[in-house]
Simulated scan of single mutants.
Amino acid sequence: MSRATVLACLVSSSVLALTVAAASPAQAAGVDYVALGDSYSSGVGAPGQSGICLRSNHSYAAQWAARNSPTSFQFLACGGAVTDDVVKTQVPAMNSGADLVSITIGGNDAGFAPTVLTCLTSSDATCTAKVNQGRAYVANTLPGKLDATYAAIRAKAPGARVVVLSYPNIFDTSSVLCEMSTTKRKALNGGAQALDDMIKSRATAAGFVYADVRDNFAGHGVCSSRPYLNGLTIIPPQNSYHPNVNGYTSGYLPALTGAA
């Protein structure tokens, strides 16, 4: 598969679909759990992805359900989702009696995939300019999008504990050898920081629990010796710059467990 094909897959949009997965017996009996969000919640980057939403049982959501056996588990997260998809498709499919809801959202709204594509194929200056464009969106437009999304979740499941998880910094910046320059890696990590700061602000304002995964991923970015994220991936191409199994198990799962 060509590099162009891999990069094209990074910017492809997705259609949302609904699946409901059962959990095994364990300690969260009586809890109805719903996993919302985008590819970082559906499990893109891990093995076993299926369906048009690319859901994997190695995602942090599916792993939490398998370990804790909630009464019900709705796995609604979908690769490629933006805030409007959550509001229009995922929230309406939610169980109104949900006790626990988890979500990652906002990265695609801010142009994650096109920004990575630009940084892969362009100069340091062009990459930085593209990241700054995304940061402007995060500062000026995304807050309203997040507020509307969080309000829709609260309206559908008024009694739920809602855990909003952050995104990790994707790149290790200490390694000399990497698929992107240090300037590009620092710019992208700075953009992720700005995104996470805004998500934290709006989640807190909504009365939700914010779970930061960045400390768990520290030292495990792309180009580190033990990465928790995939770099540019040929097969399957959508795995590029998404958590691997270690990222979901050691990065995301502890954050949800600690916040749930």
Rank of each mutant, 00 (worst) to 15 (best):
A125I: 09
V31P: 02
G159I: 00
C78S: 07
P114K: 13
S122Q: 13
R154T: 14
L142T: 11
P70R: 02
L253W: 00
V116G: 00
T257M: 03
A148M: 00
K186E: 15
A218S: 15
I235H: 02
G190I: 09
G247P: 07
N95M: 07
M180G: 02
Y60W: 09
D147F: 11
G43L: 06
Y228C: 10
D99A: 05
C9N: 14
G51Y: 09
W64V: 05
I103H: 09
T83Q: 01
S59K: 04
G43K: 11
D147L: 08
A192S: 12
S59H: 03
V82Y: 09
V176G: 13
V138C: 10
I199G: 07
A148D: 12
T5W: 12
G97R: 07
G134Y: 12
A26C: 10
R226Y: 11
Y252W: 08
K88H: 13
G79K: 00
V101S: 08
G159P: 09
G251H: 02
C127K: 05
G190T: 12
T183W: 03
G97A: 11
G231K: 03
V116Y: 11
A192K: 01
L117E: 14
T257F: 03
H58Y: 14
L120Q: 12
S224N: 11
R55P: 06
A22Y: 03
P92D: 05
G48T: 08
A28R: 12
A110V: 07
A129C: 09
T19Q: 12
G45R: 01
P243I: 12
T104V: 10
N68G: 08
N108R: 07
S225E: 08
S69Y: 04
Q74P: 09
A21S: 13
I234T: 15
G191F: 01
P236M: 03
S72R: 06
P227R: 05
N95K: 09
C223N: 00
C178R: 10
S50I: 06
L146H: 06
G51F: 03
N216L: 10
G45W: 03
C127H: 01
L229A: 14
R214I: 02
Y248V: 01
F73P: 08
A260C: 07
V209Q: 06
F75Y: 07
P168R: 14
E179W: 04
G258D: 07
Y210R: 02
A113C: 06
R3C: 05
V15C: 11
G80L: 01
L117Y: 15
V82F: 04
L177I: 15
A113G: 11
D147K: 15
A194G: 08
T183N: 15
T249E: 13
Q63K: 04
P254I: 11
Q133L: 14
T257D: 01
A187S: 12
G134A: 02
A260K: 02
S96I: 00
A148W: 02
T249D: 13
L36H: 03
L256W: 00
T5F: 14
A125D: 13
A187G: 11
S225W: 04
G45C: 03
C223R: 01
D124T: 10
Y40T: 02
A98S: 13
V245N: 06
V34D: 01
N216S: 09
K186L: 15
H242Y: 09
G207A: 09
A157D: 03
V162M: 05
G258K: 10
L146A: 05
V245T: 13
C9Q: 11
S123F: 06
L253D: 04
G134H: 12
V222L: 08
Q49F: 00
S175Y: 03
I235V: 15
